[in-house]
Design a protein around this nucleic acid. Structure first.
Lengths: 245, 245
DNA sequence: TCATCACATTGATGAAGATCAATAGAGCTG
DNA sequence: CAGCTCTATTGATCTTCATCAATGTGATGA
């Protein structure tokens, strides 16, 4: 089995995180892979966990590297992206608190992960995690369901990338993000945007300039208000009309 | 538990498919969800299976409908697609022999599936299949791994849709398809194209005309040859250079 | 064999969004 | 608070691909 491999220079490392207090007090447990597990399974998972923290814009792991760990984000947010040799970048997702990184347990990372803000995560050795999944069917089932859900989101994103206009892309992005924040902090009209316009562009297959123009247009049309670090969604009905499935 | 719900008007229905001969002789077993299962698990799966056949361009199931069954394609090929209210279409994938439909076991179908040719499949009642997965950890693990693989393919497709030019899209599509055919029939330079140019366009986020122009260009550049019902890949190196990750 | 029909190809034009360029803020640091 | 840097916004122009339109081709069937 592989050793636990710490990602580059985490700010803090809590070797005693296997104390059951960690999981028991975890704010994102209800949202995470750990939800719907029995006490004994949770304890086994807890034993593998190591709590790590990251600075803003730190790399958690890189595309192509051997994959040693899987992670559960506990605070902050991160971008998942793939790079082409010539530098073009496609962001394949953003992970928020409660999100799990490591659904496709391959030998090598299929994408890179970088923090958007300071962030923290539960880290698990990949091999041990995989073995635990085999030993605990509830965990495996949970992982399978999460993978199915992710797959469904990825297919939605394909529609956005392949068949929507720039304005529709931005509208769908804002709605999708708000929906995810709602699960976490219950906010209804606020959508914090921890990522840059460039990040949004690389997620939606647009340039920074086009993202900026579309945001301005939505604001001019009184559908959103641009506020520091995010937007407020003023007119959900019209936003949904733009983004409708 | 839900009844087995046959898709609309399958051409043939073999109620005796639970005879173990079916699975034992299945040509695509090595490629399918059924691979890497123990004899007892395979037998349990076999009991649920029903072999069904479809005509060309028949709907197997439709987006938004309640999902009653999951399928394993045994011959022919199908398109998986999502429709927007105004008729725009995004094909989220093509399934070839051995491919499994039903990785995200949600209540309603997230997309429609139609055959591209005459095709046949193993049909399983969704609820019973889900229960079997819970009872047979090997099956569940297999499903989880397949879901992870699909997720990874979906992320590759996001890069193609979001950050590649028309020519690169077509090159990547042809290479990807050839790779999948190679697993099935071992062909190395032939890539049968059971789908129309329109289908390819709706998969790549292009119009029919652009797909046609790019195919012509690749043929003019002696990278491919267009043959009836498919293409031959003449210059894999240059094709890979266009499609490189 | 020819008519029909669906699909593919090719050409001409147009529009959405990319690119190039300049300016404006916002956050840091000395 | 001035100066610096990084990001966002806005404007002008250009390119790629979409759209509109015509023609070609291969399969089917009378």
């Amino acid at each position: 089995m592989l050793d636990v491999q710490a990602p580059d220079a985490p700010l803090t490392l809590c070797p005693n995180s296997n104390a059951s207090s960690e999981c028991a007090h975890c704010k994102v447990r209800a949202l995470s892979v750990c939800s719907a597990l029995e006490a004994e399974e949770l304890a086994a998972l807890d034993k593998l966990a190591r709590h790590v923290s990251f600075e803003k814009h730190q790399t958690i792991f890189a595309q192509g590297e051997a994959s040693h760990s899987v992670f559960n984000i506990t605070s902050g947010s991160v971008r998942l992206f793939k790079l082409l040799p010539d530098g073009r970048r496609q962001i394949v997702g953003f992970a928020l608190p409660g999100d799990f990184l490591g659904l496709s347990l391959s030998e090598r990372n299929a994408f890179s992960v970088e923090t958007l803000s300071i962030a923290s995560a539960c880290q698990f050795p990949r091999a041990a995690f995989s073995e635990l999944a085999d030993a605990k069917p509830h965990l495996l089932r949970r992982l399978y369901d999460m993978a199915g859900h992710e797959l469904s989101l990825a297919q939605d994103q394909m529609v956005i990338l392949g068949r929507r206009t720039a304005e529709e892309k931005v509208a769908a992005f804002l709605l999708g993000l708000r929906k995810r924040w709602a699960r976490i902090d219950g906010s209804t009209v606020r959508a914090p945007l921890p990522m840059s316009r460039q990040d949004i562009g690389d997620f939606l297959g647009l340039t920074v300039e086009t993202v900026s123009r579309m945001m301005t247009k939505l604001a001019r049309d009184k559908i959103i208000v641009i506020v520091p670090d995010g937007v407020r969604l003023l007119d959900l009905a019209r936003l949904e009309a733009l983004a409708e499935t």
